[in-house]
Design a protein around this nucleic acid. Structure first.
Lengths: 192, 192
DNA sequence: GTTAGACATGTTCTGATAGACATGTAAATC
DNA sequence: GATTTACATGTCTATCAGAACATGTCTAAC
């Protein structure tokens, strides 16, 4: 359950409302840790109950602004320093890739083309996020250097996938030799 | 829910039991789509009920061997050809990385060192998997070329992360200039 | 013979996730 | 004045994932 710590981290960076956090999660974590507002509001209640954050009501609207407590800061740092982290990466496209052999060459290259475009977009998105930071678009407080390191990770990650998809498109007409009696599902049935 | 299709794909490659599939999932998909045996056995029941696979009892032990049906093959190909795929990559380390600024330089470099080692190991693991395939260690049926493409994706993915962690370690003593009144949580409190 | 380790298959419970449902306000445009 | 869009906060329910619980067999070593 790292949404808990993601929220704790964002609130530590600066106080924010549930609405803010919903948007910032979508923008910053995007596809690496998706979370809808139902989850976020629920987790905020729990964090408040546990005393890791506290809430102030602000403005004419009943807008709730959350601030981190000392306990919360301590917990964030404990989480960051943890050595036994979870490296699980749940990533369907890679699962799918294991079965590319069952696609026809045409299907496959079309598919890889779309993947390449998508990953390139994601890499660009994070590059843009870093640039926006550099311009100070975000009310720039502490996170500068560290932010750049992180964004670099995301850029490399998506960049590597984009490179791969482009390489795989040209490198692979799926014409690998096949064993006897080992028909591709897309092949016409053999004559009797 | 792509475990369904992962299993369908593996069974299409060759008939297998729940035990086989549990091990193959762990070995092949490893950290990109983890699945324990409770999930796998459950999904196999559902796949059987839906007529996508069928089961034979084999040997003295009540070992159940699953085979794909024609309906199952069709469903696999439908899934592969889908254009609106889910690109979500649930990846906690990247979430954590967004809050590196809250770590002390020492903590951070130690952390990055561990990350680098782990990712390098994963990349090597997939490289080895590809090499084993090339040697025909796996009773090599159809998946050769396609397998290599996939493994290449995994190698690049983990390789990019390893490169990043190594780069971040040397490139970043976390000494970025900080704004006035913007204390690092790990700093000693300022004198009164 | 018995014990240990690999093989093999399930259920159950708890927590995480995602989509749908539900409500209401402030500001800007028409 | 009415409508639309963005802001803002929640609940409910179904499904999914993961850990623990539970059972039993075959094979090889002792």
């Amino acid at each position: 359950m790292s949404l808990r710590h993601a929220l704790l981290g964002l609130i530590t960076d600066e106080p924010a409302s549930g609405w803010d956090l919903t948007n910032r999660c979508a923008e910053i974590f995007g596809p690496v840790w998706p979370a809808g507002h139902p989850q976020i509001y629920g987790e905020l209640s729990r964090l408040t109950a546990d005393g890791l954050i506290e809430v102030d009501h602000e403005g004419p609207r009943r807008r709730k602004v959350y601030r981190v407590t000392d306990t919360g800061t301590a917990e964030l740092r404990r989480w960051l320093a943890q050595t036994d982290t979870d490296h699980t990466m749940r990533f369907e496209p890679l699962v799918r890739a294991f079965f590319f052999q069952h696609m026809t060459p045409g299907d496959l290259t079309g598919h890889l083309g779309r993947e390449a475009r998508y990953y390139r977009e994601q890499a660009d998105k994070y590059r843009e996020l870093a640039a926006a930071k550099d311009r100070g678009d975000y009310g720039d407080s502490p996170r500068t250097h560290a932010m750049r390191i992180t964004v670099e990770a995301a850029v490399r990650l998506f960049g590597a996938l984009a490179d791969w998809a482009e390489w795989a498109q040209t490198a692979t007409p799926l014409t690998a030799p096949r064993a006897e009696g080992d028909r591709h599902p897309a092949d016409p049935p053999p004559p009797e």
